[in-house]
């Protein structure tokens, strides 16, 4: 069995082995192997290519941009997605604008250990994908499976534009698969994680698994719920969403992030404007609550959507 975290490590290993342009830069990622051990053993295996950085998120991203312009393929690790706010300027104003302004590509990958874990609290739990997806010039990935963690990281480095890679911390050790995949869906395509006919749940990241659990629970009520895993939030695969809604007539979008202007808002906007006629009832959404992310596990489980909450929301959707 291989975990989500091991899949990321295996992808980085393969990237370093296959491409001399690839190097890793981030805090504690060298001989220590990273705060979560995603880069374990890589510094020893690839001397001079897995570099510890000072506690300087702005400089880390800025240096990656400079190296990318020089033809390298830097992969930077933010220790937590939350800390990427300190490197926000370089990401959204420099990396994201570079190609449009200068016609020079900026192939950097910024890895964001994202999302909540019990006890994570306000500054070690955030989901930043909507923030980055807002800016033109960035690709935003949110792998929700072991297979996608591996194959999407490989593809992220192959892409000639800056990629924000939101890997989910809750899945690091929880999620396991039999083996690494040989092939994958193209980036930008959503995946039907579960076939259904009565309603569609659109989701991404760790919420894919909460949604699948909710769908299983609803089987005993006679419902077959379709679950769509977005995989990338930018670009957003509107076609697959509309095709699913065409089959089911009902849609709930579930996201671990805050509601205002988030991925669920964008999904609802797309489906309502482009697929209004496909909907039997108004599209619904379920998000985290609109507060900072609480520290205590009891508060935290009531803050973010869980399988139970998704079951309740889906029942409401089905009964509308």
């Amino acid at each position: 069995m291989i975990t989500y975290l091991q899949a990321l490590n295996a992808a980085l290993d393969k990237l370093l082995a296959d491409d001399p342009r690839v190097f890793l830069y981030g805090q504690d990622i060298g001989s220590f192997g990273g705060a979560f051990k995603v880069t374990k053993n890589l510094a020893a295996r690839y001397p001079g290519r897995v570099l510890d950085a000072p506690l300087s998120e702005d400089a880390i991203v800025g240096m990656a941009i400079g190296a990318a312009i020089e033809g390298m393929r830097p992969i930077v690790e933010m220790q937590f997605a939350d800390f990427s706010t300190c490197g926000f300027n370089q990401i959204v104003n420099h990396a994201a604008t570079l190609f449009y302004r200068t016609e020079v590509q900026c192939p950097i990958v910024v890895r964001l250990p994202s999302g909540g874990t019990p006890g994570g609290g306000p500054f070690h739990s955030q989901s930043m994908e909507a923030l980055y997806a807002h800016y033109p010039g960035l690709i935003v990935m949110t792998p929700g499976t072991v297979e996608d963690a591996y194959s999407m990281l490989l593809e992220a480095v192959a892409i000639d534009d800056p990629v924000i890679f939101c890997e989910h911390k809750f899945l690091y050790n929880h999620l396991k698969a039999e083996a690494l995949p040989d092939e994958a869906l193209p980036v930008g395509k959503a995946r039907i994680a579960r076939r259904g006919r009565d309603a569609t749940i659109v989701t991404h990241g760790a919420m894919v698994h909460e949604s699948l659990a909710a769908a299983e629970e609803l089987v005993s009520d006679g419902y077959e719920i379709e679950v769509v895993d977005l995989r990338t939030v930018k670009p957003l695969d509107t076609d697959t969403l509309l095709a699913s809604v065409a089959r089911t007539g009902r849609m709930l979008c579930v996201s671990e992030a805050w509601p205002w202007g988030g991925v669920s808002a964008e999904v609802l906007a797309r489906v309502s404007t482009e697929g209004f006629g496909l909907l039997d009832v108004p599209a619904q959404r379920l998000n985290a609550r609109d507060t900072p992310i609480p520290y205590h596990p009891d508060l935290w489980s009531a803050h973010r959507p869980t399988a139970d909450a998704i079951v309740a929301s889906t029942r409401h959707l089905l009964e509308m």
Partner: peptide, 20 residues
């Protein structure tokens, strides 16, 4: 870019790449 100081790490990263 307009944000002052932003070009320092960019040049540093370009130099790091040259060294590599």
């Amino acid at each position: 870019i307009s944000h002052l100081g932003a070009m320092i790490p960019l040049v540093a990263g370009a130099l790091l790449a040259r060294r590599m």
